[in-house]
Design a protein around this nucleic acid. Structure first.
Length: 104
DNA sequence: GGGCTGACTGACG
DNA sequence: ACGTCAGCCAGCC
């Protein structure tokens, strides 16, 4: 197993396994890695923004990048998710009950 | 070794 | 529903 892999590497593994049209939350990924409260650490890993990684499938617990420090990538993420079939509501967030990937 | 920052989350008023 | 505080983990100075 890749248990020896670094924390951020595991994050990329999980995100890369997220199917198109589905989204996962930082806390969900963190929880999967064994850190239920390590959502910030996951966010730090995402901040690296490695190419080839579907970072747009990673959203916050609200179902979107609603508001925060870096909001410039929100419209980009929304465009990418919509291209995969994800639907945003009038509030600008995704329904995690429908598009939330429970295969994690 | 100590402190600060950050693509977060949950709880409280 | 909204604004604010504290907690959490990894990396960097």
């Amino acid at each position: 197993m890749n248990t020896n892999a670094n924390f951020y590497h595991r994050v990329y593994e999980v995100v890369a396994r997220v199917p198109a049209g589905k989204v996962v939350t930082y806390g969900q990924v963190a929880r999967h890695l064994g850190m239920p409260s390590g959502a910030r650490a996951v966010g730090w890993a995402m901040r690296q923004c490695p190419e080839g990684l579907p970072w747009h499938r990673v959203v916050n617990a609200q179902g979107g990048l609603s508001k925060g420090e870096h909001t410039d990538y929100i419209p980009l993420q929304r465009a990418l998710l919509e291209a995969e079939g994800v639907v945003f509501d009038l509030q600008g967030h995704v329904d995690l009950h429908t598009f939330g990937w429970d295969g994690i």
